[in-house]
Design a protein around this nucleic acid. Structure first.
Lengths: 177, 177
DNA sequence: CTTTCTAATGAACAGGTGTTCAGTTATCTG
DNA sequence: CAGATAACTGAACACCTGTTCATTAGAAAG
């Protein structure tokens, strides 16, 4: 995972992976049928864990759920930079069948946010003309944090989360109280 | 560019590039000193063209400039999917020196948006506690369009641009008139 | 201590990698 | 037309690629 994240799937050889864990290349094939499965397993495990971890209580207040989602997304992605990086960068190195599986999991994650936005609309707590577009925009915005945030900078992750919560509220038309 | 965008720098060989343009691999070296320069030139040209094309009249109304920037970013990136994809995905395949050059150009592009936000704040037309964070959030949000937008879908690029202009306004705290 | 089972090695396979360069072919100039 | 310049080929270099497999080493069980 470290090597794939740092240098990319195509640029890392099985021999390098083997050296990293202290064996010869042949030994890897006791654990994976091939290199492709290695990549797919990393991405699949990550997406499964993401879906299992995302909080989603349909009975709670939509705005509270939205705030929870924003904080969750930023924190979860921040804590797993390698997994996140691979899952966004190495999609094109998956076989079509494997790609379809990951795409489906990703869509299900997006659906969590879109449900929140739809419930928020129904409850009149927010106003956005297109919940699908808003979902994609919010996720792109939040995921962007992991491309530039580094510990020890001007702002803490809590500061960042507060700023993004402001921006998300504005973007999806939450009226001031 | 097509091959790098579609399959990735590391996965494409000089022989494949040569075949694509109808020559032998050796002939490519009449035009580029090495493969790395090929990648760097693509990215460098793209970033230079982007910076040359971005509209930025400092005397105009900040809100009008912001709307222009949003429409420009979406349109410009939509029209150059391969360049955009390479410039975001292949950063790690640049040598450190080349990476620094591209990073600098990217920062200069971000500065264009941040200037607009700062002027908007000074003019009291928008309200965002951190223009740097807002800049990164807005650019991530807008760039995300090119990862999912396909011609002929439910919405036209003009529809999308209108929705994103709504969301950007909300995100950076533009008060309703 | 021997047998059984698991796990790792290291060589081999068939092919691919970026890059160089002497030699050939094509194009342009006078 | 000949001469000069430019462009391209194709072989070569030294090495790396994912994957397989007979053989060896290590650990667990009886």
């Amino acid at each position: 995972m470290k090597l794939f994240a740092r240098e990319g799937y195509a640029a890392v050889s099985m021999r390098r992976i083997a050296a990293e864990v202290g064996v010869q290349a042949g030994a890897l094939y006791n654990y994976t049928p091939d290199k492709q499965s290695l990549l797919f397993t990393l991405m699949h495990d990550h997406m499964q864990a993401l879906l299992a971890a995302v909080p989603g209580d349909p009975k709670a207040d939509p705005l509270a759920r939205l705030e929870t989602f924003v904080a969750f997304h930023i924190r979860y992605h921040h804590d797993r930079p390698d997994e996140v990086f691979i899952s966004y960068m190495e999609l094109r190195n998956l076989t079509p069948e494997n790609f379809a599986v990951i795409e489906d999991l990703r869509r299900r994650y997006e659906d969590v946010l879109e449900s929140i936005l739809r419930d928020g609309m129904a409850a009149g707590r927010l106003h956005t003309p297109d919940t699908k577009i808003a979902t994609l925009a919010v996720i792109a915005m939040l995921t962007g944090v992991s491309t530039w945030f580094r510990e020890g900078g001007r702002l803490s992750l809590e500061d960042i989360t507060a700023r993004y919560w402001d921006m998300v509220r504005g973007a999806v038309g939450v009226r001031a109280q």
